[in-house]
Design a binder for these strands. Structure first.
Lengths: 292, 292
DNA sequence: CCCGTCAATAACTTATAGTTATCATACCAT
DNA sequence: ATGGTATGATAACTATAAGTTATTGACGGG
């Protein structure tokens, strides 16, 4: 008792004629006869009364027709649903986005993606880039839009944009008139950083360490706005992507020497089958030109 | 995309292992591989992630599993329902029963049948035997429990019981002391009959006609009780099955000469596939011994 | 780092769905 | 009645596809 047999039975029941049903189904009439016989054999009684000229449903046939139609309808609905997934008119995936990128890169990316795939759903998990990387590793999310850590061998990644990290210091700071600054010059300044779990913090500390320096961290937070306000108030200096701060009163941005860049991109787990929606997003990001 | 493929997919999804699923389904492992591949080929994307050690469902696979399980469950339910029809633990049929038989033959028949097939349902249409015969012809009912008309070539029938028709007349009637009566003796008596559509009426009038007589019909009704009451009141005489009237005050029953019998039985249309429940009833009636 | 487990693949076999040709029967028009 | 037409059943055959055995290749645990 398979789907094909049900289809044949339903068609014959509709048309009340084996030959007509055969035509409609583009097969020969004996094929229909055989299939109906097989079905009746399996059930143990007749579904169709062929003693008269017209084919008529038996009482049991009426009951079975109802059940068969329901099954066929559900089968068709299931196929349809899967076609929607295939056509990317249905689908969901999970993405981890740190606050910094959530504020400056993700909105444009998301808006443009939605324009192309309005039916796809994205579930965003906000967390620091380091944590985001782990979420991708553990498969809690399908992709991460993160500040790319320098070494990342076990995950695939795609660079979206790179931004220069600049020193942010109060306008009235003695160093604020320099064309560029070295870590040596900054070694005694108290600094304001993101909390643990944020790649930007790791990168800055690693840079200090390169020169054998250990800065004094005045405060750490995960609020971007807080960092800017604290710098303006003279609590300490900080390091932020050049384009993430437009114009802020009492804050001066000065490039580092040598220049330090922050790479932002998408990461995902290789050898792992992703939702079609997520693949579409990755492909989309590949084509995407990030405009600052 | 057929039922078998869905079954394989659901089993693999449950066991997260192709080989184990093959064992459970009593087929070889490559058969499973092939079926899953065919399914994925048709849908256009993978349902199962086989890159890791364990077989895992993809996001699309999770969705499809849900749909597949629903379809399989409905398929199983449909099969089950049909098995119930086959086992006669489910089923209905329509039967026409005239009031006379509804009162005296049918109750016992029905009660005994129900004892054997408690789950079967009968839909009873009450109408005169003549009408009942037409209902069977038109297939409005599957069987009729009727007074068998003398000639009935186009329908199958089965005799259940035969009863003698006796003359019913008031106890104080001049003829009430006779051991038997002829139609000749009754030719001037006003008679009370069933309405048109009742075989008993037809039979009585035909008997009169055999002797070239036309009786005067005082009144006709379709109420058995009315006939008895009118006879008791002396409105006229009547003719009824011997056993249908037990003891009624002021009514005397006298056999006819020659004896006239009424045959009661089941009729159904040949070359017409009946519901299994109805077949069971006909078979049951075949075995049934009617006790008066 | 090798071994065991497990899915994929290839070549072949079997089962069965489908085909053509033909027959049997019910119904309709003459 | 009665012959013609329409329609389903049957038989013999073919083609498709589901299943089998044998084998390979890849991943992960001890």
């Amino acid at each position: 008792m398979d789907i094909r047999e049900l289809e044949y039975f339903v068609t014959v029941s509709e048309l009340k004629n084996f030959t007509a049903a055969a035509h409609k189904l583009h097969i020969s009439q004996p094929a229909i006869s055989k299939a109906i016989h097989k079905l009746e054999e399996e059930l143990g009684f007749q579904l169709l009364d062929r003693t008269q000229k017209k084919v008529l449903l038996t009482e049991e046939g009426v009951v079975f027709l109802d059940l068969a139609e329901d099954i066929l309808a559900r089968m068709a609905a299931a196929k349809n649903t899967m076609i929607e997934y295939k056509n990317l008119t249905r689908g969901t995936f999970r993405i981890a986005v740190p606050p910094l990128l959530g504020a400056y890169v993700f909105p444009q990316l998301f808006a443009d993606f939605k324009k192309n795939y309005p039916s796809l759903e994205m579930s965003v998990i906000e967390d620091g880039s380091s944590t985001a990387v782990d979420l991708v590793r553990q498969e809690d999310v399908h992709v991460g839009l993160v500040i790319l850590p320098p070494t990342l061998t076990d995950l695939h990644s795609h660079l979206i944009t790179s931004q220069e990290i600049v020193v942010c210091l109060p306008t009235d700071h003695p160093l604020s008139r320099q064309p560029f600054l070295t870590f040596e010059q900054l070694k005694d300044e108290p600094i304001i950083l993101y909390n643990e779990g944020f790649v930007l913090r790791r990168i800055i500390l690693d840079e200090y360490a390169k020169y054998g320096l250990v800065p004094s961290v005045a405060l750490s937070t995960n609020q971007f706005q807080t960092i800017k306000a604290l710098v303006a108030k003279g609590v300490g200096i900080s390091f932020l992507p050049k384009n993430s701060i437009k114009v802020v009163n009492h804050v001066t941005k000065i490039p580092l020497h040598p220049h330090l860049f922050l790479e932002m991109g998408l990461i995902w787990k290789p050898n792992k089958i992703l939702p079609l929606a997520c693949k579409a997003f990755i492909d989309f990001v590949n084509e995407f030109e990030y405009v600052k």
